[in-house]
Write a protein that binds this DNA or RNA. Sequence first.
DNA 1: CGTGATGATTTGTG
DNA 2: CACAAATCATCACG
Length: 389
Amino acid sequence: AFGRTEGSWRLSPPFLVAFTHSSFFRFRKHALNCHRMKPALFSVLCEIKEKTVLSIRGIQEEDPPDAQLMRLDNMLLAEGVSGPEKRGRGGPMAVAATSGGCPNDNSIEHSDYRAKLSQIRQIYHSELEKYEQACSEFTTHVMNLLREQSRTRPISPKEIERMVNIIHGKFSTIQMQLKQSTCEAVMILRSRFLDARRKRRNFSKQATEVLNEYFYSHLSNPYPSEEAKEELAKKGGITVSQVSNWFGNKRIRYKKNMGKFQEEANIYAAKTAVDATNVVAQGNQANSPSTPNSASSGSFKMTNSGDSFINLQSLTSYQSSPVGANVQSQMDSLHHVIHQTGRYDTIVGNPLYTTQRIDANGSWQDATTPSSITSPAGDPGSVNSDASN
DNA sequence: CGTGATGATTTGTG
DNA sequence: CACAAATCATCACG
């Protein structure tokens, strides 16, 4: 009767047969109860029972795979399969819309993942519920049978309890199977999602625009702060980690061969330098070190004083005395503006001081270069004399 | 289909 | 943990 409800659980037939057979006795029960030998028979049965039950008693094995079940439980909980039901299931709707106005493919993939996960969760929960229901049903059924039989044969409450425990044990192993397969499904889904995440989609025009703008206007120190990253992420409709990835890739690739990026650099520098040039030009004339530029330098660390010094040095014809390091971003822009306005004809295939600036410096990251700070006149115009006429 | 561009991941370092 | 560098895997284009 039990196996009929759902074919999937594997209860061994003998386990069930023992109880279904009891109906066979039913029609004789009355006769038996009324039999005059019944008390005697009962006592005999009790006697036999007395001997056998003790031997059975010792087999109260506690299941050792308890730890594994805990592990599965924990994983399911961590994966959000078990635990509180979060949202409506299944629907391909409901995407956590990104703040940017851009169609973000990542969220699409994510929602797909979520949908499938919730599907798994739904199945898991319904199965679990079914199991529990069936378990309690079966338990009460068995208990009723045993109670009924206890009138004809000796059955102590302890035994009933033990029986119930056995049943629960059986069902819990089934549950564990369910949990295990659910875990597997989640793992498969997860790995597939990770693979899918690796599937790359190019950023939107807007995103690359914003990122490149920042990169080339902070070329001497292209390390956006956390805030700046968030800002860029918001503007570009991508995540902060994507911004970080982008800058990591960009830095390494830019450094690797800068000639390839010259055109791009000029484009973006010209784009952002329009306002910066004015400020710089004024700043140059006034030569005021304390003028805080508003546009390009937000909240930056600017720890590379050596770098900035070299930058300024490369423009000695414009800058008579050292200025605050926060002007350097405008310098970066200015570099390219000069390229474009002054020597744009010769720029092709000839990476000028931009290249050499980086080369002379070695890298962005640790721009200590202690030598040039104390002795600025060490190698005066070797690098930049041609560029700054 | 080959190839460079490009986003993401991995590995190693401080 | 942020970053550099190497590497992977896909995209986009001829």
